[in-house]
């Protein structure tokens, strides 16, 4: 199967997730080997996903967990005192 760039873009997310069927994956890889634009789109998308998944990009507020469990404990104590 010969794919054009638009076909590849449409499948790029599933390709990154490894959920495209083997035959389609082979066709995508054949296209990528010959199309520097699509290869750059794939590399940049994947790179951006690594960056947003990093804990430094989205950190929890300092003390979040302590405040959460304190509030939870207060609620548990109140319910125990006044079931």
């Amino acid at each position: 199967m010969v794919l054009n760039c638009k076909h590849v873009w449409k499948e790029i997310s599933n390709y990154i997730d490894g959920t495209v069927p083997p035959e389609l994956r082979d066709s995508i890889e054949q296209h990528l080997a010959n199309c520097r634009h699509c290869a750059a789109v794939l590399d940049s998308t994947r790179n951006i996903l690594y960056l947003i998944a990093d804990e430094r990009t989205f950190a929890l507020p300092v003390g979040y967990s302590d405040r959460l469990h304190l509030r939870l404990q207060n609620a548990i104590n109140t319910e125990e005192a006044d079931p």
């Binding site: 873009w9 634009h37 750059a40 789109v41 790179n47 960056l51 430094r56 990009t57």
Partner: peptide
């Protein structure tokens, strides 16, 4: 549209670059 930014080459941005606040802000 499913159109991405069409670029001709990509140089990897290393994870260490996330030490830069500007990059974190840009992603958010």
């Amino acid at each position: 549209d499913f159109t991405p930014a069409v670029i001709s080459d990509w140089r990897e941005v290393p994870l260490e670059a996330l030490e830069r606040k500007e990059l974190r802000d840009m992603l958010r």
